[in-house]
Amino acid sequence: MLIEAILQAVTAVLVAVGLFFFLVGTVGVLRLPDFYSRTHAATKCDTLGAGSILLGLAVLGASRGDYTDGLKVLVIAVLVLLSSPTAAHALARAAFRTGLEPYTLPEARGGEDR
C-alpha cells in the first residue's frame, strides 16, 4: 500500500504542476499584446501542461494496474509534444506570410508614439 500511496502522490504533484502551467498559458494568451507573443505562451505552456498531466495520469493508471491504458496515455502525450509546436509553427508562418506585423516596444520603433 505504501507504493500505491507514493504513486498517488507523484500523480498529484504532476497534475498540480500541469494545472499551474495551463493557468499560466491562459493568462499569457489573455495578457500578451500580439499574436506572436501569445503563441509563445500558448505553445510552451500547453505542451508542458498537457504532458505533465498526462504523465501523472499514466502513473495513476499504472498504480491501478492498467498498464496498457498508461501506455496509451503516454502515446497521447507524445502526440501532443509533436503536434503542438508544429501547429503553432504553421499558424505563425501563415500569419507572417499574410503580413501580420509583430508588436514591438514603442521606443524600439524610433520613439514614435503608438
Binding site: 500580439d34 505562451a41 510552451k44 504532458g51
Partner: peptide, 24 residues
C-alpha cells in the same frame, strides 16, 4: 529546456509590468 521555457513564460506573464521586447 521545456521546463525552463515554461518558467520563463510564467515569470514574464505573471509580472505586472509584462517585460517583453519582441523582435524577429
Amino acid at each position: 529546456e521545456i521546463v525552463a521555457a515554461n518558467i520563463h513564460v510564467a515569470e514574464t506573464v505573471l509580472d505586472p509590468r509584462l517585460p517583453i521586447d519582441p523582435i524577429i
